[in-house]
């Protein structure tokens, strides 16, 4: 008893603050960001975005791939001939 951890979360400021009070009276304060952008403004509504290309549903790509990987390459894969059953590496 006598200790406490209190918190204040402020979406408009984009921060969260904590105050820790030990049983012996020691106090520690911390502040962290909770977001880097105005709350929710940069989250897309997919129903209004570009539609997937014809046939893309049959590929392995997900939304915004492969460009969203930032690799300038296609999604990687593994040739099935190399699969090994039941051995240990």
């Amino acid at each position: 008893m006598g200790h406490s951890v209190r918190v204040r979360r402020e979406e408009e400021k984009g921060t969260i603050s904590w105050k820790i009070k030990f049983r012996n009276g020691t106090v520690k304060d911390f502040v962290s960001p909770i977001t880097t952008k105005p709350w929710g403004k940069f989250i897309p509504k997919l129903s209004e975005g570009d539609k997937p290309n014809q046939g893309e549903i049959n590929s392995q790509r997900l939304y915004k791939e492969p460009e969203g990987l930032n690799t300038n390459e296609e999604l990687p894969s593994v040739p099935k001939e190399s699969f090994k059953k039941g051995v240990y590496y």
Binding site: T35, I43, K64, G68
Partner: peptide
């Protein structure tokens, strides 16, 4: 990368 774009610090 999407989480980053959405504002996750």
């Amino acid at each position: 990368h999407m989480f980053d774009e959405w504002g996750l610090p």
